[in-house]
Each structure stands twice: as structure tokens, then as C-alpha cells.
């Protein structure tokens, strides 16, 4: 597992714990007191480290290759998943998946970005960067869910919509724009959760929810810190500075009223405890779905539009 610099003291302690446990087992002594004390020390340290993370360090956590992805959540949260494929125009985008799922006894449509964990899978998943056909597939499935009366749960985790020749030729901008417009018109609940990277238009393209939730160590921004640094500061190496300036952390987003709730992560981050993280996500999803499912279609449309309509900071003389 990749270890970031700020995680090193925690990993050191974990190493000590496992060494002691092994030793105690070998020589058959009772080290419960010492182990308990070390574990407490580790938890306190983790809590301190994670509470004090700089914005760019959170971006690193959001990008951790062991962080749970859409398919992990499907496995950990849903009792059923029937994947549906293709945009009926060009292709089936493997960077953006969707299908019917059962979540805590509720039938829903789940969609979201899917990253890969190794080179081979990432070639197929395009690092979670969807092409226009991904956004068109998403809209096709959402329209279907609308007709069937199924609530929609959207998992956001992308560095951004793919910037390539084919994507431009096939109308990446148009595909996203149409989703932004037509998601406003959906008469079923739309619940979005940013589980990792909320990369700009690529995230927003499936992000027009009645409510938008975000995990504690996820981020959501108009541009990557690296991209911002290279354009505004003329130096991609100043990404950490850009990450701070962009106010892209979960806390910032809650303060701006962009997200409704931060889903806490287990101490040490979702990548260290995926099962526990999934349970926390599930509890939040179920609670919000229950509330949204009580709303009639027109109220859902109107509340969704109002949510985005009111965002903006300006003055009028």
C-alpha cells in the first residue's frame, strides 16, 4: 500500500503493534496491556494527523489507489447489482458505470465513475475519466429510472472528464451540458456522493442532485490543484498552494452550501478501513433517500433547481 509522508508515524506504530503481537504469540506471553496501550496511541495519533491534514494532503488521500471505488461500494453496500451497458450511440464507457441495485431493501439506480487499481484495469477504466458516451449512458439510465420511479444514487470519483481527441469529436461539452440541463427535470430523488475526486465538469455531469454528500477526505473543485498551479501560478509544482487557494475540502464545501453533509471516514481514512467506510456511507445514503422519497416529483425538481439556482456571491448597487 502507498504510504504518504504524513502517514509514516502511524504506519511505524502499526508495524510495532504487529511485531509485538507476533512476538507475544511466539513466546506465548500475554501482551494485551501493552498492545492496548499501543493501539490507543495509534488511534490518537491517527486522529491528530487526519484532523490536521493540509488541503493537498486530503487530495492525496482522495486519490489513494486503495481507496474504495464504486464497485467496492456496490459489493459492500448492495445485495444486488445488474449492470446496464452502452449509450446506444457509440460505445460502452467503462469509466462510468450504471445499473439497478438493491440498497438496504430499496430498489435504486446506481451510477458512478470507476477507476482501476492497476495499469491494466486503468487502461480499461481510463483512470475514471469518462468520454461523452459515459455521460450519455448515464443520462439514458437516469431517464429510464425516472420512468420506472427508481431513486438515483450517483457516486462521484473522477479526476475530470477525459480531454482527448475522440472526446472532443464526439461532443464532450455537449454531453455534460445536456446532463446538467436534463437532470434538473428528473422526477425521482437524485442523491450524489463524492467518494474521492470531484473533478470539475466531469463530476458535475452526474452531480445534479437534490442533495450532494461528500466523504471527509474527498474533494470537489473546478480544476485540479496541479492544473490551477500551472495556469495561475505558472508552476505545476505549486499544487499544494493551489489546493489551499481553491477551497476544495469537504469542510469548505459544506461552508459554501455546495454539499449538505460530510460523511465521516474511519480513523486513518477510507483506504485503511473500506468496510467500515462503506457502512458509514450506507447509513447516510439510506437516511437521505428516506427523506427524499417522501417528496413528490415536482417538489423534487423544484428543490433541485433551487439548490443550484441560489449558489453565487455577488452584490448589486
Amino acid at each position: 500500500m502507498i504510504t504518504y509522508d504524513f502517514e509514516k508515524p502511524i504506519v511505524e506504530l502499526e508495524k510495532k503493534i504487529s511485531e509485538l503481537r507476533k512476538y507475544a504469540a511466539e513466546v506465548n506471553i500475554d501482551a494485551a496491556t501493552e498492545l492496548g496501550s499501543l493501539e490507543r496511541k495509534r488511534d490518537v495519533l491517527s486522529q491528530e494527523v487526519y484532523a490536521g491534514l493540509e488541503p493537498f494532503q486530503r487530495v492525496q488521500v482522495a486519490r489513494h489507489p486503495q481507496r474504495p471505488y464504486l464497485q467496492d461500494y456496490l459489493r459492500l453496500l448492495c445485495t444486488d447489482f445488474m449492470e446496464l451497458h452502452g449509450d446506444r450511440r457509440f460505445a460502452d464507457d467503462q469509466a462510468l458505470l450504471g445499473g439497478f441495485a438493491t440498497l438496504a431493501g430499496r430498489r435504486v439506480l446506481v451510477l458512478g465513475h470507476q477507476k482501476g487499481r492497476d495499469v491494466k484495469e486503468n487502461m480499461r477504466r481510463n483512470f475514471g475519466m469518462a468520454h461523452p458516451e459515459g455521460y450519455r449512458k448515464a443520462l439514458r439510465l437516469m431517464t429510464l429510472a425516472d420512468r420506472a420511479g427508481l431513486p438515483i444514487v450517483s457516486f462521484i470519483d473522477t479526476p475530470g472528464a477525459y480531454p482527448g481527441i475522440g472526446a472532443e469529436e464526439r461532443g464532450q461539452a455537449e454531453a455534460i451540458a445536456v446532463n446538467l440541463r436534463d437532470m434538473i427535470g428528473l422526477g425521482v430523488p437524485v442523491l450524489c456522493v463524492v467518494i474521492g475526486e470531484g473533478g470539475s465538469g466531469g463530476a458535475l455531469g452526474i452531480g445534479i442532485g437534490n442533495r450532494v454528500l461528500i466523504m471527509e477526505n474527498a474533494y470537489y473543485s473546478v480544476i485540479s490543484p496541479e492544473g490551477c498551479a500551472s495556469i495561475l501560478f505558472r508552476d505545476a509544482k505549486r499544487a499544494a498552494e493551489a489546493a489551499t487557494a481553491l477551497k476544495l475540502t469537504a469542510k469548505d464545501l459544506l461552508q459554501f452550501g455546495i454539499v449538505e453533509e460530510i460523511i465521516a471516514e474511519p480513523i486513518g481514512g477510507a483506504h485503511r478501513h473500506p468496510e467500515h467506510a462503506a457502512q458509514l456511507v450506507k447509513a447516510a445514503l439510506v437516511r437521505h433517500l428516506d427523506e427524499l422519497c417522501a417528496m413528490p416529483p415536482d417538489a423534487l425538481r423544484q428543490q433541485r433547481y433551487e439548490k443550484f439556482r441560489r449558489v453565487g456571491v455577488f452584490s448589486e448597487a
Binding site: 451540458a177 446538467l180 434538473i184 465538469g201 473543485s221 473546478v222 464545501l253 439556482r309
Partner: peptide, 15 residues
């Protein structure tokens, strides 16, 4: 205006 700017895409498209 980062995320607040980004949301203007949703606002205008929604309108």
C-alpha cells in the same frame, strides 16, 4: 471562484 463558479454551469443549464 472555484466550486462556486463551477455551480454556475448547473444554474444556467437548469434555467
Amino acid at each position: 471562484e472555484s466550486i462556486i463558479g463551477l455551480m454556475q454551469m448547473a444554474k444556467t443549464s437548469g434555467a
